[in-house]
């Protein structure tokens, strides 16, 4: 199908983009890579009156680092992350996750911020950034605000973004050298959205031990103290985490998420899949 008619603007900075969104009075939509919004427009699931293309905003394509953190502009593509073009603040987690998102033709255009703002529960960045306890940086007419990614996403395809607010960047705390991670996803076909995601991170120097039950029916389920799953995989504790993730009663769903956690743990400890 063809998209319904819309107007198109490509502002040069964040302030101009926010102004355009304010003027659209709720009928504006931000587009970056367009790899999720494009299909939705073509299928007429989305019918905005105005598309605001943010790829021309230099700040949103920038990557900056401090000793403590890496800030990634919302318009940084999956391919740029996959190809190791960013400083490695996550001991290889971001490139490894990026490499398995959809297909290269999609990764060349799709962006980190676009994926997070789209808030598909099965998307890799939604779950990875929750694992990393990343911070979303938003800008609206009243200025900037910061939110934990876990507070940014409210539900499936629902976020804290106001109609005239823009996701500008994501900040990730730098992992220590002792940090280890494991990530596993089940997809019915290579490159498709995941049926289940299991992810964990142990960073003793920063006193972080987190796990994520991902690709749920809503927000990622974060286990903030995951010692009983991540340091040593205890099946009963993993089952509790899966139960708490609100997946419903389907035993197949539960088993898949349990297995994803188990395999993520095995990968983290250097075992096979």
């Amino acid at each position: 199908m063809k998209a319904a008619a819309f107007d198109y603007e490509k502002p040069a900075d964040v302030a101009a983009a926010v102004k355009l969104l304010s003027g659209a009075q709720g009928m504006g939509k931000v587009i970056a890579g367009g790899q999720s919004l494009g299909p939705m427009l073509n299928l007429r699931l989305a019918q905005p009156q105005l598309l605001v293309d943010v790829r021309g905003i230099a700040e949103m394509c920038a990557v900056t680092e401090t000793p403590e953190a890496l800030t990634i502009g919302a318009c940084v593509t999956h391919a740029r992350i996959e190809d190791g073009k960013l400083p490695d603040a996550t001991r290889g987690l971001l490139p490894a996750v990026a490499a398995d998102i959809a297909y290269r033709a999609v990764r060349n255009r799709g962006t980190l911020g676009g994926s997070l703002a789209h808030a598909d529960p099965a998307a890799d960045w939604v779950n990875t950034l929750a694992l990393l306890d990343a911070v979303a940086i938003l800008q609206g007419p009243a200025g900037r605000r910061e939110l934990k990614v876990t507070e940014f996403m409210h539900g499936p395809f629902a976020t804290a973004l106001a109609e005239d607010e823009l996701l500008v960047a994501v900040r990730i705390a730098r992992l220590s050298k002792a940090a280890r991670w494991g990530y596993y996803k089940f997809c019915r076909k290579t490159g498709e959205f995941a049926e289940a995601i299991g992810a964990m991170l142990v960073d003793p120097e920063r006193k972080v031990c987190r796990a994520v039950v991902g690709a749920t029916t809503s927000v990622p389920h974060v286990v903030a103290d995951a010692r009983a799953i991540a340091e040593r995989f205890m099946p009963d504790e993993a089952l509790k985490a899966v139960e708490a993730a609100g997946l419903g009663d389907d035993p197949y769903e539960r088993q898949m998420h349990f297995a994803a956690l188990k395999r993520a743990a095995a990968r983290m400890h250097g075992g096979g899949s």
């Binding site: 198109y8 490509k10 790899q35 494009g38 073509n42 598309l51 790829r55 033709a105 060349n108 255009r109």
Partner: peptide
């Protein structure tokens, strides 16, 4: 190919 990299032309708008 757009700017040297493969891309889907059906979900890329000409205006962009």
């Amino acid at each position: 190919e757009i700017d040297g990299a493969p891309a889907r032309s059906c979900i890329t708008y000409a205006a962009t």
